[in-house]
Structure formats: C-alpha cells, structure tokens
Design a protein around this nucleic acid. Sequence first.
RNA 1: GGGCCGUUAGCUCAGUCGGUAGAGCAACUGGCUUUUAACCAGUGGGUCGCAGGUUCGAGUCCUGCACGGCUCACCA
Length: 510
Amino acid sequence: MEAYENEYTQQRRRNLADIAALGFPPYPAGYDRTHSVSEIAATYGERSAEALEDEAVAVRVAGRIQAVNVMGKAAFIRFTDGAATLQAYLRKNELPEADWLLFKRLDLGDFIGVAGKLFRTKTGELSVHAEKLTFLSKAIIPPPDKHYGLQDIELRYRRRYADLIANRDARAAFVKRSRMIQAIRHFFDARGYLEVETPMLHPIASGATARPFVTRHNALDMPLYARVAPELYLKRLIVGGFEKVYEINRNFRNEGLSTRHNPEFTMLEFYEAYATYEDLMTLTEELLTEVVARVCGTETIPYGEATISFARPWRRLTMQEAIVTYWPQESRPTVADLADLAGVNRALERLALPVAPTAGYGKRLGELFEQVAEPNLIQPTFITRFPTELSPLARHADDDPNFVDRFELFIGGLECANAFTELNDPDEQRRRFEQQLAERARGDDEAMPLDADFIRALAYGMPPTAGEGIGIDRLAMVLTNQRSIRDVILFPHLRPEAPEAPPAPAAKTP
RNA sequence: GGGCCGUUAGCUCAGUCGGUAGAGCAACUGGCUUUUAACCAGUGGGUCGCAGGUUCGAGUCCUGCACGGCUCACCA
C-alpha cells in the first residue's frame, strides 16, 4: 500500500469503485471540449442573463472540482481549468439517473466534463446548466484546504503540483516568469539575434569561477562537467561569424543553496560583435524596460518594502564610487583612497572585514563592495570599473590595465546581470588563464581552468565584441516580487524526503 | 558547516504552570431544487517529526537525529 493511504484515500477509492460500477470508465481518454473554462469566462463573462437565454449557448467544458454546494435535489459544482473557474448547476430531475448518482460519488479534486447551456443564476453568476456529466479522473488524495491553500513551505516545494492546485499566487508567478522569457526572446529576435544552444556537458569547467558538478561519460571513459557558464562556447560562435547570438539555458554550480542560489539556474547570455560594454548598458535598459512593460504593464513595480522604477536612465556608479556612496560609518574613504592596496586594506580594517590573506587588490575591493554597497542597490544600478583580477575573460580598460570594461546590474539588492567588453587577444587571454592557474596552485579552487581550444578559437580572430549574462531566476524574483529563488523555480533542489517507515510485520499485501 | 526558529488530524492552526488531545475546513450520516468560504442536525478521525532521557505523569522539560525556514560562512 502506498504511504499516503489513509481513511480519506480509502473513501475516495470506494467512491471510484462505485463510479465504475455505475458504468463510468474510471480513467477515460480525453474529453471533447467546446471551450476551456477560461475561454468561457473570456467569451461569455460579460453576457447578460437575457442574452444567454436567447442564444442558448451549448457547451462542453471540463475541469477540476474545487467546491460543491449540495441543496437536496440540486447542487452547484465549482470547477477550474487552473486559471479560471466556472460553476455547474445540477438538478436531479434534469440529469440522467446515473449522472446524479455519479455526482454523489464525486470528491473535491476530481476532474469532470459538463455538457449544458450557459445561463446566469439569480445572483448573477455565469453557470452551466448541466444536462450531462462525464467522469474524467479521480483525485485519490484530497486537495489542500480550499480556503487557506497549501501553506507548509516545504510541501509547497516538494509537491509543487499541490502548491499549483491550491495557490493561485504560485501559479501566477510561474506564468509571469514564462511571459518574461517570451518577452526576452521577442526582444532579441526582433534585433536580429540568433538563438543558439551550446553544450551542457563540458570537458573543461570554465567560463566562470565556480565549482562544477562532475559526471562521467562511459563510452569515452572521461569526466564531463555540467556547465557553469556557456560563455566560451558562445564566443566561439562569434569567432565563427555569427555576429549576434543569445542562449537561454541552465547553468550548474556545485555550491551552497540560499534564497538567491539554486544549484541549477537559468541564464540568458548574449554576445554582439562590434559592441562595447557601454552599448550593452543601453541595450540592457531597453531590454528590461520593454520586458517589464510587457510583463507587468507598468514602469514601476513593488519589491518587498521598496518600489522599483525602471524609468531610464539608470544610475551608473563605479565600484569605488559605490563603496564611498554607501560607506556605513564615520571616516568615509574617497575614491582616491581606494585606488591602491593600502587604501583598500585601511577601509577593510575600519569595517573589521576579514579577507583571505592570499586575496589581492581586486578581490579585496570586490569584498568591500559586496559588504558595503550591494545590499543597498535597490533601484536599477550599473556598477562599472571592475578589477581585472576578478575578470579573467574581460578586456582591460584603455586607461588602466588593472581594471576592465565591465558592469554588473543590481536590482533589489540582487546581482541581475554581468557584462563586459570581451577580451579577444589570444595571447592576453592565455596570460589571464595562466594567472588563474597560478592562483589555483596557491590553493584558490575558484580559479578558472584554461581552455586551450578557446584560446585557439580567439587566434582565428574574434571581432571586438561585448557580451552579457542575465540571471533569469533573479530577474523573475524582481518581477514577481518574491524574496526566495525557490519561489520562481518550479522544482527547487531539496534534500530527499526521509524514507517511509517499513510496514508493520503484521501487514500483508495481497 | 555555524547560529536562531519550526515540525500537533488530509489541510490551516490552537494547546496556559508538566496532569484525559482541541477548533475550522475536509470526510461520513441525515435534511434542504439558484448556492457564493451555502446552511441545519449528528458522527468518526491523532506514531503530537524520529529515538532516547528526566518525572508518579511529557505535545509541553533535557539530549541526539531527520527534514524545513531564516541567517552567517561558502558562493555570483
């Protein structure tokens, strides 16, 4: 017996057996609908009672039963297609006898088909006057509470199906996420970008500084890594002559979970030949204002306690300016103070922030930025002028090789995008990889491995290019006003459920 | 991995000072032919996350474990 069996499931199984005994197939194939519930609501939702009576609209519609009101020899059944609801009105003396008996054996959560004519009740609600009921499927397990939904956060993630049945908000967030991705595709397609798919299994886990998931290819007898980033493959395509490409797909990083991190997450990456990171700031403003307008219908959206405005232009700060701006206490440093290692160390000391002794100027500046500024970047803000040490794939700034032409976009305190003018000098790229290898040798397991074929690709010649990655999940968090990434990922990663206790020795299965 | 918090009926939640386990919804029985979280009357339903300990007595106190949430660390 299944672990979920109890008095409720047993009662429902008896009802199912009774339904079959009445001659209704217990799990029939298909149902010939004339409309979905949503289509009926959209088409006839405003139609007057008189108009409905004149038209005598006959429909066949199906859905999951949400609520039942029985009044002796008449009843209302509220059912849903997931998006909209409709009620059926039943009278015992107007239905085939078997259909009324079927009705008596229905449970909340079951699927039914209803054939009848649309009308309005005396309280004005659009309804189907049922002439024929069809049994479509049984819910053996009762649905969550019909008023309070499914509140248990663990069950909402583990049994997303139950969450989606019970909680309209959950469903709405995922619909919004889907529309967001649709709007992104529309934006890039309209600009002549080519959507591509690059490998998810990589022989080398490069393109981002992150610990990979490792697997094994049996036939080739070699390790493979679930990709941490598609970057190096997409740039190979720029070398190959596609001038504008984008990919929306999963990345995998073998790191901690949090409200902002899931081991697999969805990334949009796009690359455009002849563009610079500054062009991409403009493009990102255009992209997100268009997406927000299409998905939310406004330029301003709520996020937690804040209200986020996507009105352009968005603020732009260098990393150093952001640290100065959000310095939390007395003795605020100046941008000039943060120009060298000694100044950054003084700032770290003032805030009593610990850093790894091996960290150089760039990592220390980045740490300072993360602690001081990042949580405060609620309105869309571009942070520019990243240290080269943190950016092994980005082109150095023309005025200072210690910095690169890079920005990150923060919204709601979340890092939502990362972009730079690409390093396309193969010799410089090799030196950058070798620096990373040296850091790895010093014990930094976050350093990025060298990809020799990628360097060879650059040697074939890559045009000046800029590229960007946008975290789809985090963007979905902002647009749906969710504070946890698990609320915008349908099946977020959780530990496995504890195995069920073994059955009692006396219990015999027939 | 650390800290704090949580786990009670199918679901949502109470449970006081350690003294017989509660409610609403759901379910079951009966009534009701236009209800709106329908209503009326009645009934059944518990491994209080798991395992120990303290105690005459543990849902309640203590310890360990599991799972989850928040957070820190790690990490974009």
